[in-house]
Design a protein around this nucleic acid. Structure first.
Lengths: 234, 234
DNA sequence: CGAAGGATTGAAAAGGGTCAACAATGGTGG
DNA sequence: CCACCATTGTTGACCCTTTTCAATCCTTCG
């Protein structure tokens, strides 16, 4: 019942930042339930555009939730090739680890504010409250689901299918109005989709010429034919 | 202390099947601790080569551990393109979900025996024993780590780098002696690495001609120069 | 207003995919 | 026990998608 009242009070704090769709909504509620219930201190902190939040291999002492802005988490190969595993948008929780250290690097894509809580505190709460433990597991499981879907994209989808999937994901996660305001540049999109930035640009141009989408500046996109994108998404 | 005695008794049942390396070893112990401690009934079951164990979307009522054989778990696109997310070898746990249903399909690669326990039972155990809850989370977190590594491979590595990574992973996980006996065919390897079977075959041939590895039949491989593979693996 | 980063577009190259033929393997039944 | 045949794997030739390299065009912001 405490859980219930907390869950329903979530929109009060996060309503204007809320995401649509199954993934982030679930994570958002879970994080709030967990932190509020456990009475943990959630500090706010801000990062400038391109500032690193934590690096791969660093000790995982905090768990983060995006309040405003956007975050990319990625891995690098020795020669600088980069694979972005996920974008974190307002409401999303990131940096939650079961092990001792972070396995990806995270950076603010634009000026970003996060709420953060001590990992240790969450673990302690999980020891006494099974709901907290359940939620930590569920959040990691949600990340795994996303990774599984993304492996299919990276391993088997064509450039057009990848871009279509990306557009639908972003539409679901950050379209407040008809217009979708992408926080990330073409290179970020490319490194998320396993393509080059030129291929992303070309594919978007092609979709525009087909009337599937429209631009107002490179990062303001309107989807004019979602069904067409869903068909492409394979 | 109960945990301890159970952990140390693990080799008695799983010793001959044991995996080397960090990933599976951890999962193995955790699963045994969890099931033995909770006093859950672990049934054995066998599947013929290519038999489906569960399908994507099916209710996740059981958690599995490979006793002998090998399992592939994958996702399909509508036109049949397949992405294998993981291979499960003796000792590995698979099918563990936090949500209601399985998100990948699993099949036996060869005749395979698994131990299985009711998911419901594990969840109940997790409600009273925080160590069980912690272990369930840790196992899902281990799967996530593998998926994160694999996204980097699928999105950014060359064919040669993918094959090198695969060989080192299999060497770590199933090489008992010098010889490594792959349970899976070239198509399975290709669908795991996001390549075609022809490219996998060509790349392996090239490594053989360079003296990096040797064959005794297509699936019996000896690594003659691991350092060379590690350098390629980027 | 001008510089600098970001995005688009073009042309050429390459890595891996496709299609096809052939070889090896191993399981089965005579 | 051996021979046959289906399955699996290898190799070659060609093709195509995507990458690479380069030039140019936009914006955005000092």
């Amino acid at each position: 019942m405490l859980t219930q009242s907390l869950t329903t009070s979530v929109p009060a704090t996060l309503g204007n930042l809320a995401n649509k769709g199954p993934y982030p909504a679930a994570a958002t509620d879970q994080f709030c339930v967990v932190t509020a219930h456990a009475g943990l201190i959630a500090t706010e902190f801000s990062y400038k555009k391109d500032e690193e939040i934590y690096g791969e291999g660093e000790s995982a002492d905090y768990v983060y939730q995006v309040i405003r802005g956007a975050v990319r988490s990625y891995k690098l190969l020795s020669d600088g090739r980069r694979q972005i595993g996920a974008f974190h948008l307002p409401g999303d929780v990131f940096g939650l680890e079961s092990g001792a250290s972070h396995r990806l690097t995270t950076e603010a894509i634009v000026d970003t504010t996060v709420r953060l809580v001590k990992r240790r505190g969450l673990e302690q709460a999980a020891e006494t409250d099974v709901r907290v433990a359940r939620n930590l597991w569920a959040m990691t499981s949600g990340d795994l689901r996303h990774a599984e879907d993304h492996m299919l994209l990276l391993g088997r989808k064509t450039a057009m299918e990848r871009v279509a999937t990306f557009l639908l994901e972003m539409d679901r996660r950050l379209a407040i109005t008809e217009m979708m305001a992408l926080p990330m540049c073409r290179r970020d999109i490319a490194d998320y989709l396993g393509l080059t930035l030129e291929t992303v640009s070309r594919t978007l141009s092609q979709l525009q010429s087909q009337g599937v989408l429209g631009f107002s500046g490179a990062r303001q996109i309107v989807l004019r034919n979602r069904q067409c994108l869903r068909n492409m998404d394979a």
